[in-house]
């Protein structure tokens, strides 16, 4: 039952790890039974209530040397196979496919470095299932908290190298079924790899505390056949081209607001709420000094974050321009002005 044990292994590394663990459990259980067998024997036989008299011996060099050396030997026997797995885990060269996984507060971004496109992968479990403060909320789905809008897609039987990094704080890219867990460290690149042996959908969760929604940034990998992967790749590349915001497009205010509302709903609504009134430690945007004050300050805070507010520098210039324009012209805010992608670009410097 996978509730008691590891998730079924999908890579040879994961299998090695599980075998190591099983072997270790055997050793440990044997030692445990021996050691506590002796102890409980003493507890049941050598007790005062049975009239047992104490024998006041208090040292025995032979025994003491033995119980120092034997455990040391057992450890060597455990360390040897473990070391081999460590070396295998670290050997990420020769990968066929390299994907950069970037942690954001609080979702993942994947860039297919060899194919020149990327996308974000976000939790889709609705808030109405999650928030049960006042009532039991909506019924929780089968993949509650483990479902995303767009999983990472990789081909089966292919060595895939994952480069991890982060946009803000440390996250960790973990896929238990693959035997993979690699921290994503802002400003640095780390790597790990896997070679999935079966097609299917596999799920993991961010495994390093990264702030309020640490529990809400799952990792989903869809392993597909090599052919399916090719088809998907082609589709994805075409889509990416079409969807890319044309950098030369001239935006109108209303277009920006419409676009911004989507961005807001995808990113900001969890804290600042749909009505922009915020709540708890999250300030209201409605009538706020920043959302009605100078544009520069507004752009700055979105780019850099402040206290509980993370940096949103991971969004594109267009997205930031749009969402700021939306915020300045909604919830009763009526600045009437708007921010263009090029303003954001300039502010990033």
């Amino acid at each position: 039952d996978s509730r008691f044990d590891f998730q079924p292994a999908q890579t040879s590394i994961a299998q090695d790890i599980h075998d190591l663990h099983s072997w270790l459990m055997v050793v440990i259980l044997v030692i445990f039974c021996l050691v506590f067998g002796v102890m409980f024997y003493a507890i049941f036989k050598h007790r005062r209530s049975l009239g047992h008299n104490a024998k006041p011996f208090h040292e025995n060099t032979a025994v003491e040397v033995a119980w120092t050396l034997i455990p040391a030997l057992i450890l060597v026997v455990m360390a040897w196979p473990a070391a081999k797995v460590v070396l295998a885990q670290k050997d990420s060269h020769d990968a066929t496919l390299t994907i950069k996984a970037t942690g954001y507060q609080w979702f993942w971004g994947y860039d297919y470095l060899d194919s020149g496109f990327g996308y974000k992968s976000k939790l889709v479990t609705p808030r109405s299932q999650i928030e049960n403060y006042k009532s039991a909320g909506d019924a929780k789905g089968e993949h509650y908290l483990l479902e995303v809008d767009e999983p990472l897609v990789v081909p089966v039987d292919t060595k895939v190298r994952i480069l991890t990094t982060s946009n803000d704080v440390i996250h960790s890219w973990a896929m238990p079924a693959f035997g993979v867990k690699q921290d994503a460290i802002p400003g640095f690149i780390r790597d790990t790899w896997f070679k999935a042996e079966r097609t299917g959908i596999f799920r993991g969760q961010c495994s390093e505390l990264c702030g309020r929604d640490h529990g809400f940034m799952p990792i989903v990998v869809k392993v597909v056949s090599k052919d399916d992967y090719k088809t998907w790749l082609g589709k994805k590349q075409a889509e990416a081209k079409a969807a890319a915001d044309d950098p030369n497009k001239t935006w109108t205010r209303d277009e920006l607001i419409a676009r911004g509302q989507k961005v807001y709903e995808a990113n900001c609504v969890a804290c600042h709420k749909a009505d922009g009134k915020g709540g708890g430690p999250f300030p209201a945007l409605a009538g706020s000094k920043i959302a009605t004050g100078p544009k520069e300050g507004h752009v700055h805070i979105v780019l850099t974050g402040k206290n509980a507010m993370p940096s949103w520098a991971g969004l594109t210039d267009t997205e930031i321009a749009a969402v700021i324009t939306y915020e300045r012209n909604s919830f009763g805010n009526k600045t009437g002005d708007f921010v263009l992608p090029k303003d954001v670009k300039a502010a990033r410097k």
Binding site: V35, V38, I43, H46, R48, A54, K55, N60, W67, A79
Partner: peptide, 25 residues
Amino acid sequence: MLIAVPTGVKVFNWIATMWQGSMSF
């Protein structure tokens, strides 16, 4: 892993102290 050795020594010593004692609980 090596730390298990001295810690083990401690556990074994405690058990050897109980062994052949006149224990009460």
